[in-house]
Amino acid sequence: MSKLKKYSGKAFSVFLLLVGAAIMLGPFIWTISTSIQGPGKAYQLPPEFFKPPFHFENYLRVWQEGNFAGYTFNSVIVTALSIIGVVLADSFAGYGFAKYDTKFSNILFLVALATMYIPSTILAVPQYTMWTKVGALDTYIPLVLPKFLGSIGGIFLMRQSFKALPNQFYEAATLDGLHPIGIFFRIYLPLVKPMLATLAIQTFIGTWNETFAPLIYLTDREKYTLSVGLLYLRQNYSENLELLMSASMLTMLPLFVVYLFAQKYFMNGLVSSGVKG
């Protein structure tokens, strides 16, 4: 009897998961189907799914006429620079917090943790006036430069990883005559590679999807990143759902690909950010 109950419980779970999976996947299937439809086909009844003729040229139109080639290039530049900045700066500061236990670093860390609670939208107002004053509007500087100085979320992750490594390495390396900077780059940094990968991926997703900062800082359409480009397309082609869907697919594709190849690093970040720590 209890065995039967157990199996019925499992069966119910699987049923629930299948219904849920259909709800999760449905929108994607609809998006793909719409993205290769002819103009106006999205607004007709009954709706059609994957009915030829297919208009793969929608993707080409968005890529060329819609300048998604340019937006993709811009997003790649901004994202690549951000990843380099975050990985360098956050591991630098994370190492400082983990290995040099001074009064200064302790106070700084507490202050930094307190600032985590301030919503970024709110800080954007004074930060924007600051960038206006130094004439950095319509450049990638406000999007990228702050990442080269570190931010507390990533620093916290890196601090945890460096803390887990023994201090004896440091002492031994010093005895062997290695410089403190050399100790960081040649001994400790290579040991936290998995966490660096996690940080890089988190930064990739965050920057690729970022809308608010590019929206307020960039005015020249040639400089737009993908998400702002999507917004612009929405303003000008709001009736052409098939183009909007091709553009959305183009924007999402790199995220699918990265997820497919780097799955384990996604979970790594989730677990170490304190799910159970």
Binding site: A89, A93, G96, F104, A112, T115, L149, G150, I181
Partner: peptide, 17 residues
């Protein structure tokens, strides 16, 4: 050296937050 490693972030914290 601790100050050296923490210098960039200290600047960021003051100037940008």
């Amino acid at each position: 050296w601790g100050i050296f490693f923490l210098a960039p972030y200290t600047i960021s914290l003051f100037v940008y937050t």
